[in-house]
Design a protein around this nucleic acid. Structure first.
Lengths: 178, 178
DNA sequence: TATTGTTATACTCTATAACTATA
DNA sequence: TATAGTTATAGAGTATAACAATA
C-alpha cells in the first residue's frame, strides 16, 4: 500500500467519500478493475473495427497467428493463444467456412492438421491488420511513445506474474479463517 | 507505428520471423492482445483469491460499491459498474442470499430499492479488500510506484478514449471496400 | 408516458470429460 | 498407452425485449 493507512488497512468509507472521489473510488485502486474497464472499451472498439471484415478479436488473432506461422498445428496454436483445443475447433470451422484458412493432413502425422491461410485470408488479414493498428492508435491517443511502450511492458510483466506462484511458502494467497 | 515500416504497413511475415520473435509477435503490437492476456492472469488470480470468501471479481465489486454508497439504488449501481440492470438482479439475488446485502423499498419512490450492506457483508468486504490488495501487489510485482501509477493512468485514459468517438468526420473506424 | 426492477432469452467466451483415429 | 482433433456440455459474463408496479 502506498497511501495513508488506517489501523485495519481498510479504506475510509465515510459518507463524504462520494463527494469528489467517485462512487467506485475503492475499486479504482485495483489494477484489475481499471484494466477490466479499459479492456471492455478496447474489445468493443476492436470488434466494431473488425465487424466489416467478418472477424472478431478472437478470430482475427487466430487468423493472424496462422498467417505468420504457416503449417502450424491446432494443438500448438491453442497453446500459443491460450485457447482450449475444443474451443479452437469451432473458430477454425468458422474461418475455414469463410475460405480464410485450410486444414490439410500433416504428411508425417496423420492425426494432425497443418493450418494455412488462403490467398483470400492473407488479403483480409492484411487489411484487418491496418484497421487494428488504427484502432490501437485510437485507443492509445494521449499516450506518448514511451508511455505506450511502458504500458506494453507492464502488461507483459503482469501476465508473467500470473504464471509464477513463486512466493515463499504458500502461493501468496491469504487463507481466511473458516 | 514505431517500428520500421514496409510499403503497405503490413508486418513482415517471412519464415525467419518465427526464430526469436515468438509466434504471436504480430499480435504483441496490439494493446488489446497484451491486455487480454494480462487481464486473464489477473482475473484468474483474483477469483482464486476471492473464492475462500465465496466471492468473485464481479460480486466483490458490487459488494464494495454498495459498502461505500449506502442506500444506493440498483439502476445507479448498474450505471456505475457498467452492468446491465437485468444482470445485476442475479448478482444481488446471490449477495442477498448470502446475507451480505439487503434490498429495502425506497420511502420516496416505491418502485426502487435501497441497497445496504449487512454487518456480515461489511466484515466480509473488509477482509476481502485486504486479500485483493495483496493480490494487487502480487500482480504488480516488479513495477515501481511510479510505474504502477502510470499504469493506472494509462488504463483510465484508454477507458475514456473508448467513450469518445470524437474524431473528425466518421467515427475513426475504417470502412473497407465491399 | 416514463422509470424501476424483473423475467426470459440468447450469444460469446471459456472449461472439462469423453470419444475417434492415429501413433 | 499416449496424442491430435473432435463432440457434447456446462458455466460465466454480457446483451436485448418485454412485462408489472409505480411514478
Amino acid at each position: 500500500m502506498t497511501g495513508p493507512a488506517n489501523p485495519a488497512g481498510v479504506p475510509s468509507s465515510s459518507a463524504d467519500d462520494a463527494g469528489g472521489a467517485g462512487p467506485d473510488a475503492i475499486l479504482r485502486n485495483n489494477i484489475g478493475y481499471d484494466m477490466k474497464r479499459a479492456f471492455n472499451a478496447i474489445q468493443a472498439d476492436v470488434n466494431a473495427t473488425l465487424q466489416p471484415f467478418g472477424l472478431r478479436m478472437l478470430t482475427y488473432s487466430v487468423l493472424a497467428v496462422i498467417r505468420d506461422n504457416n503449417g502450424l498445428r491446432q494443438s500448438r496454436l491453442a497453446e500459443i493463444l491460450l485457447i482450449e483445443r475444443p474451443n479452437l475447433v469451432l473458430i477454425l470451422d468458422e474461418l475455414e467456412g469463410l475460405d480464410l484458412v485450410t486444414r490439410t493432413r500433416a504428411p508425417d502425422d496423420r492425426r494432425a492438421y497443418e493450418l494455412t491461410v488462403t490467398l483470400k485470408g492473407r488479403r483480409l488479414c492484411d487489411r484487418a491488420f491496418r484497421a487494428v493498428a488504427e484502432h490501437d492508435n485510437r485507443m492509445a491517443r494521449g499516450l506518448g511513445a514511451e508511455e505506450r511502450a511502458a504500458l506494453h511492458k507492464a502488461l507483459r510483466l503482469i501476465e508473467s506474474n500470473g504464471r509464477s506462484p513463486d512466493d515463499s511458502g504458500n502461493s501468496g494467497r491469504e487463507i481466511p479463517r473458516p
